[in-house]
Amino acid sequence: MRVLQINAVYEKFSTGRNVKEMHEVMLSKGIDSFIACPDLDKLRKNAYRIGNKVDWKLHALLSRVSGKQGYFSYFATKKLLNYIGQINPDIICLHNLHSNYINIPLLLTYIAQNNIATVLVLHDSWFYTGKCVYYIECSCNRWKKHCGDCPALKLGNPSFFFDKTEKMLADKKKLFSYIERLAVIGVSQWVTEDAKKSILKDARIIQCIYNWIDLECFRPRDCSELKHSMGLDDKFIVFGIAMSWNSQKGINLFHELADLLPDNCKIVLAGDDSSIQIKHSNVPAQ
């Protein structure tokens, strides 16, 4: 079996680590695993680098001017399709495609025409919205029917002038409908249930598969010394973890919760909080 994963990053952040670990495990199991990412900075086994810095920046500029994301990088995507033709994968896993590096219509049309089994991994909401990675930022549910009049036009990948969200969602619906063997895998129950109400609802498989946990590292152990060093003896602890804390990760909600909890309850957050300008005195971070 041959499997190709496409993602915006490799090894970095949660999605990049997910791709790397899947790639390495598949190779160890004798599966012919391949990766295609724009940020590969060195040669790796069975790896393909998509585009270059000039192409990515031009794509980002055209996206902001036109209001359409994922419609550029034509030549970089054509080269990727040539690579796909050479390795002839049985399955293509699509992770994050929303980083201005790939032409979505070209890629999905190629997949449909060649009847390649395809897995969409929902790390966020982008695959079933017009442009939003996290639609909850603006409490918008237009994606359930059609987008347009977008309240998040200036968020995420912003548009300077035009609202093309209705067209982008309609294009995604049409392009995904052409892929006969489509599976949708959510990394949480939340996005999985969303997918069942979205343009992806007709996929052959819609299933939640959580990201794995390294039980060698994350296992029960005596933390009394750590709790004592943090002044948390005999406290009920609410623990939150993220790679980096910001409003999208719910830092504001944790701060609000800290004001409501009684004295015997404390919130502890793990992750980088360097981007938080105002830190709550009752929320220690590690």
Rank of each mutant, 00 (worst) to 15 (best):
N141F: 12
I84H: 04
P262H: 04
N115W: 14
H280Y: 05
H146K: 13
D263P: 07
I278L: 13
V9M: 09
N96H: 06
Y48N: 11
Y48Q: 08
N18C: 10
H146Q: 15
S33R: 01
N252E: 15
D214A: 07
D171N: 03
A183E: 02
G271Y: 07
A152H: 09
D234Q: 11
F236I: 14
G16Y: 10
S28D: 08
A47M: 01
V283L: 01
K201A: 05
S177H: 15
D272A: 07
L58Y: 01
H23F: 10
F239S: 14
F162T: 00
C150T: 00
G51E: 07
K167H: 15
D32S: 07
K266Y: 03
Y210N: 14
N88E: 15
V184R: 00
I136H: 15
I31S: 06
S63H: 00
F127H: 12
N252C: 12
I213S: 00
N7V: 07
I116L: 08
L253M: 06
S177Q: 08
S99N: 15
S99P: 09
H228E: 14
I205D: 08
K172L: 10
L27R: 13
M26E: 10
V19C: 02
L62D: 02
P105F: 01
C265H: 08
D39Q: 07
N46P: 10
C93L: 14
Y48G: 03
H146G: 14
G70C: 02
A112C: 03
D233R: 05
G16H: 12
K174S: 11
S188I: 01
S188Q: 02
D272V: 00
D41T: 11
K79M: 11
S33C: 06
L107Y: 00
F218I: 03
N282F: 09
R204K: 13
S99L: 12
